[in-house]
Design a protein around this nucleic acid. Structure first.
Lengths: 242, 242
DNA sequence: CTGAAAATTGACGACTTGTCAAAAGTGACG
DNA sequence: CGTCACTTTTGACAAGTCGTCAATTTTCAG
């Protein structure tokens, strides 16, 4: 019969079910709220079985982080492949970040948890490697657009400010900004009403400062943002249905 | 006698001793490595006594975060008060960030821990308020310099891009960049050799993009950085001696 | 049907955090 | 000096967690 297949399948399914169970737990209260016992209980299985899939609590977090970066990567790719001048395409990736955080806030949170403290150290090198390459591909995606800009003459990489530094700058700005938005209790008190808009504006200022042509143009940018956002969210809902 | 004073003093001293003991623990392995029992043991005291000072593990983290932001604020103030054009003074604050992270890496780490997950929620509103105002003062410090720039005609705050948004941008860029430097395992793999330099360059690009006069000028900037760094580190070593 | 290999189980050890009644210490006042 | 209210300290305790592992059950090829 399909007994072999049956058992194997059950095991494989369990793996993703564990992840599905873990996700909201972490989203709610961080790693501390992720309870192996609770997972085992909800799975109607013994604790040992869960440990059979993941050596660690931390390993689960890492596995989820990988899911997160995969999702992010998908969106990045779609954004980077849109038709337009390079500057439009970086902008699109920025919007992809926004869409990502809107659509999967828990995953964004998990991404920032995995970076932290002691969690990373307790995970297996193999899985670490997976995340690393996934992250690398994300940056590569952005770097490609930057290189296109250079190739097309829209941008000059001056002196020691290389392509990677620019990617790093955008990454810092967007990641930092969104992290602050997520975790800073005092943002509103300080006068940042719409942090997303602020991030977008600052990204444009950064690109302008680098001399990336064509420089920021409010109207065109607004229209483009709307277009990209619709395109990307459309794609998402399509996929989650399929 | 001074018996009353004696007891009171002992208690107050214990409070800071607890913090001193907690600091390296957290630095080493995050909140998980912070053990109330270990602290009590090292203090040669019962657990209950420690709980007499801090309701929570988390409360200790928050207390340390406040220390952290206070240190940061000191440096910001000194940097912001340096003599020079506003653009030089923002740059100085950027350097202050670097000095801060170099000098107190554990505190920077703690700052980013307190933001996280469930920790914040478990702390008392009173202490939360303290941190919030402290953070607010930091931003105020930067905002002051930006306003000076506007007042002096070096910078125009165009349209909806207000003073606060600029502060937020710099904050994102520096905070995000340093967090990535601290926690991203793949930075070197991706071609970011000197992340600090990258951050500085990106900050300058951002300011240039905002049209903040005088625009970036490599030589002058380098010299200024060296000067500020020396000034601030001198101040620090002075204080820790006194 | 059989028997080796794989998966599952759950009691267990070791360790936490946070509580709380009881014990010890403190100091003002007669 | 004695007493007595008040504060501080104590450490056993309840409740909970993680991760292990010998024993048990399940699987499945031959």
């Amino acid at each position: 019969m399909e007994n072999l297949s049956h058992k194997q399948q059950e095991i494989r399914q369990r793996e993703s079910r564990i992840l599905d169970l873990a996700r909201p737990m972490i989203a709610q209260g961080g790693v501390a709220a992720l309870s192996m016992e609770a997972i085992a209980h909800e799975l109607r299985t013994a604790k040992g079985t869960v440990y059979n899939h993941f050596r660690n609590k931390e390993e689960i977090v890492l596995a989820l982080a990988i899911v997160a970066v995969e999702r992010r990567l998908e969106l990045f790719h779609q954004a980077a492949m849109m038709r337009g001048r390079p500057r439009d395409r970086v902008a699109a990736i920025g919007i992809a970040c926004e869409v990502y955080v809107n659509q999967f806030p828990e995953l964004f949170r998990i991404e920032s948890i995995i970076r932290h403290d002691s969690i990373w150290e307790k995970t297996s090198p193999e899985r670490q490697e997976v995340l690393r390459t996934c992250e690398g591909r994300c940056m590569h995606s952005v770097a490609g657009v930057v290189r296109d800009a250079v190739a097309g003459g829209d941008l000059e990489v001056a002196g020691a400010h290389g392509v990677e530094d620019i990617v790093f700058g955008l990454w810092s700005l967007v990641f930092g900004g969104m992290l602050l938005e997520l975790t800073s209790p005092s943002l509103a008190d300080v006068g940042i009403a719409d942090s997303r808009q602020a991030i977008r504006r600052n990204c444009n200022a950064l690109l302008d400062g680098l001399g990336w042509q064509p420089l920021y143009q409010a109207d065109a940018y607004q229209a483009w943002v709307a277009h990209v956002r619709e395109y990307l969210t459309g794609r998402i809902s399509q996929e989650s249905q399929g």
